[in-house]
Design a protein around this nucleic acid. Structure first.
Length: 825
DNA sequence: ATCTCCCGCCATATG
DNA sequence: CATATGGCGGGAGAT
């Protein structure tokens, strides 16, 4: 009932204004002090802008502005017009006006995206609730999600610190890594397959096998992924509490980062998130609850512009889904150099740690924020396993750590550059960025050589990686950088199971590995054929002009990106699979049991430039830390002085741990500088050419990705793969945009190679992208999976991967295709 | 009818 | 014990 002044601002207006604002905002913006005067003119402006952004829900009538200072409003007012004939004006706090998404916008408007490090802004929940006129409960929802992204961290009761998006790049990177480790891709495939089966077999209950296997497969015991200096027991607050929403949020994000089309349907997400904990029992109510939560999370993520809502149409109908619109996860650009400079922290750490434990902690260098350690909450473990093993609780060497090591693997290598990575991402993404981001990027980039939009990335990666990595790898577990450009093509290398089992999954120790089981899954051939068409319509409701649409595509950030309202007609989604209801009691019991999972936290050891001892201490908490520290000793070089004995335990796993991803950016050409496990392996293991490489070459050539003459070096690191001009062109033309749109069809090649590790999957663009279609039309993406069973050594276990269909006999070529339709409004 | 998802009860955690 | 958190699911608004 408050007088709302709706700031009816035309989007256009806002857009225009953005330029002005952004420069101000983006860079180091001092931002307002929350307590003092939350509503700064700037903040208001910002808020409006953000609100205006496409993502906002349908006509945004946010009366929230009412509070805002008059001046700001006035400014806006001038511009205000109702355009587009939106009837806004409903003063009613219609339900929408109370939406979490809107609330989140308001919340975000209060703080700068990139607060200057010098001054921290604190968030006082009481103030926020009062100023935003919301119930406290709502704020928690927002804050929890923000916490999961490390955009804020809790200091104490009622008190949070605002970090803004500074940590986003690292966070996403870490999440992606964890997501890969968790094999979410496979899980998704499995779920889809299962659905498919269901279609054919109503009632197919017999899926039990699958279910069980699936459940087991879900290892996701993983817990909250933490960043460097951020979070972590700031005040005593951290203990380990629920965090379920936070964890859920992280997992949800992981799904996007991991999946190829970067589109995740709620249904799938819910199933995966549920399945994790225990054997799966699909309980309908549980499922519904999960969905509710996902909507909550999605609203916040949408406000952050990390995702947007779309609809996926499969044969059965349309299902709500979300598409990742956030920054691509950069490969780890580790710049040793930069790192070195920034790495101030290390010294302190090493110093302080004379003791063995501490040393161990030192293991992982934490340079830039990349290192994450897994901090297991021992408690949980204890329940499940520890009975026997115990005692060692904190000892770094304890088994727990191992698992941790796995996680750690990622971040370990030095990389720091928080900013640069971000830049790269931005570039890659290109258009999609918000204006602010764009500017930031520009600003940052200018100084450095980096600015090149596309190609720049590889070189950077290659060198640094090449140098450090090898050494690193040997020593420290983690370090595999994986280059991923967010771009379309990727080659994934999975660790072979054998090794993998041990090292690979973090959860491994605790639980039986899922992998093995997976194989058993029943397959439906039909699935292979299953097609999914993706269509996206960006246009806002009514608008559709090709030109416009195109423009929109190119520059998503402007208004067109997401119109607030997406009207989707929804065809009835396929009826959900039947879920068997189970007694809650049962579930609960299960849950309890599930508790075991060691929930670990990934804790980035790295410190910011100003490393603090304090952090170290906090870190020690996790047994993991020790390892990192040790490694740390020779952060830059990558050589680790650690005693072999200690390292071994840890290290071994590390090698396998990270699946190698080789990403080829279309633009960049086929060249993929990859630093990978393989190289590590090769170096450490033997000089012999990696068998896998030959297979890879074969495949690539076969497909035409690579000219016949060209060979992909066994050791990917440092090398660029020459690509024929043609291929390059093609890819180039297609551009990331197309890929995203789904127009391009590509093939995914997966090879199982016993020798190295596992399978490689490559995504290769088959066709050049046609010109973008009218946005309205559905675009179809076809994915073909070619699967080549690995060499002799190949393990069955991973086979399940692709679709979950049964294992393929060796030598068999497995080519599932599916079309995906995505529609947006 | 289905999709979204707000509201707020109430169990827990924290202080 | 008083509060602060946040899991959870009913049920209502939006489509």
């Amino acid at each position: 009932k408050t007088p709302l002044k709706q700031a009816a601002t035309s989007q256009l207006v806002l857009t225009e204004r953005q330029p002005d604002c952004q420069p101000l905002t983006t860079p180091p913006k001092p931002m307002e002090t929350p307590p003092a005067d939350p509503w700064t003119p700037t903040s208001n402006l910002k808020m409006l802008i953000s609100a205006a952004s496409p993502e906002i829900r349908s006509r945004e009538q946010r009366r929230q502005l009412s509070d805002s200072s008059s001046e700001v409003l006035q400014t806006k007012h001038c511009l205000q017009e109702h355009i587009l004939g939106d009837e806004y004006e409903k003063s009613q706090p219609s339900r929408k006006e109370k939406s979490l998404g809107l609330l989140c916008h308001k919340f975000l408007a209060r703080y700068p995206d990139y607060p200057s490090p010098s001054q921290k802004s604190y968030i006082c929940l009481d103030e926020v609730t009062e100023e935003l006129h919301v119930e406290r409960r709502r704020i928690y929802d927002i804050v929890n999600v923000l916490e999961s992204l490390h955009m804020v961290s809790r200091l104490a009761r009622n008190r949070y610190v605002w970090h803004g998006r500074h940590n986003l790049p690292q966070t996403l990177q870490a999440l992606k890594k964890v997501g890969e480790e968790n094999k979410y891709i496979q899980q998704i495939q499995m779920i889809k397959k299962r659905e498919y089966e269901h279609e054919f077999d109503p009632d197919g209950e017999r899926n039990e096998d699958m279910a069980s296997s699936f459940g087991s497969s879900e290892q996701s015991e993983m817990s909250f992924v933490e960043l460097p200096g951020v979070e972590f027991r700031a005040a005593s607050v951290n203990g380990r509490k629920y965090k379920s929403l936070r964890v859920m949020s992280q997992k949800f994000v992981m799904l996007f980062l991991v999946s190829t089309p970067q589109i995740v349907s709620l249904e799938v997400a819910a199933k995966i998130l549920i399945g994790e904990d225990q054997l799966e029992d699909l309980d309908k109510s549980k499922f519904k609850t999960k969905i509710r939560r996902l909507y909550d999370i999605a609203n916040v993520l949408s406000s952050l512009k990390l995702i947007k809502k779309v609809h996926v149409t499969e044969e059965r109908g349309r299902k709500p889904a979300f598409k990742w619109t956030g920054p691509e996860v950069l490969p780890n650009t580790q710049d040793t150099k930069l790192e070195a400079t920034s790495t101030t922290c290390s010294p302190p750490i090493s110093e302080s740690i004379p003791s063995k434990e501490q040393c161990s902690k030192a293991l992982f260098p934490s340079k830039g924020k990349q290192n994450f350690t897994r901090h297991s909450s021992l408690i949980k473990l204890v329940k499940s396993i520890e009975n026997d093993r115990r005692k060692i609780q904190s000892a770094p060497t304890s088994p727990v750590k191992i698992s941790a090591s796995t996680y750690q693997s990622l971040p370990v290598f030095p990389n720091t550059v928080t900013q640069f990575p971000a830049i790269n991402k931005h570039q890659l993404e290109g258009q999609s960025k918000t204006a602010e981001e764009m500017q930031t990027k520009c600003a940052l980039s200018s100084p450095e050589a980096v600015p090149k939009p596309e190609p720049s990335q590889q070189p950077a990666l290659s060198q640094p990686l090449g140098v450090c990595p090898s050494s690193h790898s040997s020593v420290s577990p983690v370090i595999l950088p994986h280059p991923q450009s967010g771009v379309s093509y990727a080659i994934y290398l999975h660790p072979s199971q054998a090794h993998t089992v041990t090292t690979y999954s973090p959860g491994f120790m605790l639980q039986p590995l899922p992998c093995a089981n997976i194989t058993g899954i029943k397959s439906n051939n039909s699935k292979v054929l299953n097609k999914i068409t993706t269509e996206e319509g960006d246009t806002q409701r009514g608008m559709e002009e090709p030109a416009k649409s195109l423009a929109a595509e190119e520059r998503p950030d402007t208004k067109s990106e997401t119109s607030s309202q997406r009207c989707l007609k929804r065809s009835q989604a396929l009826p959900e699979n039947n879920l068997i209801k189970r007694c809650k009691s049962d579930e609960e019991s299960l849950d309890t049991s599930s508790t075991f999972f060691p929930s670990g936290y990934l804790i980035p050891l790295t410190h910011c430039t100003h490393g603090n001892k304090a952090e170290c201490s906090s870190k020690e908490k996790a047994g993991m830390c020790s390892l990192q520290h040790t490694a740390y000793s020779s952060p830059i070089t990558g050589v680790i002085p650690m005693p072999a004995s200690e390292l071994k335990t840890v290290n071994i796993p590390a090698f396998h741990i990270t699946p190698l991803n080789i990403m080829l950016s279309p633009n960049s050409i086929a060249a993929a500088p990859v630093l990978s496990n393989s190289c590590l392996n090769s170096s450490s293991t033997s000089s012999a050419p990696n068998p896998s490489s030959s297979a890879l070459n074969f495949m690539l050539q076969h497909i035409g990705l690579i000219p016949a003459g060209v060979q992909v070096p066994a050791n990917p690191v440092l090398q660029h793969v020459p690509v024929s001009s043609q291929s390059e062109n093609i890819s180039h033309s297609s551009g990331s945009t197309n890929m995203q749109e789904g127009k391009v069809s590509y093939n995914i090649l997966q090879l199982n190679h016993g020798g190295l590790s596992g399978k490689y999957s490559a995504v290769i663009p088959l066709q050049q992208p046609s010109a973008p279609k009218e946005p309205q039309e559905p675009q179809a993406v076809t994915e073909n999976f070619f699967r080549t069973p690995g060499g002799p050594n190949t393990e069955p276990s991973l086979s399940a991967n692709s679709d979950g269909t049964q294992r393929i006999s060796q030598g068999t070529l497995y080519i599932p295709q599916r079309k995906l339709e995505v529609s947006e409004d």
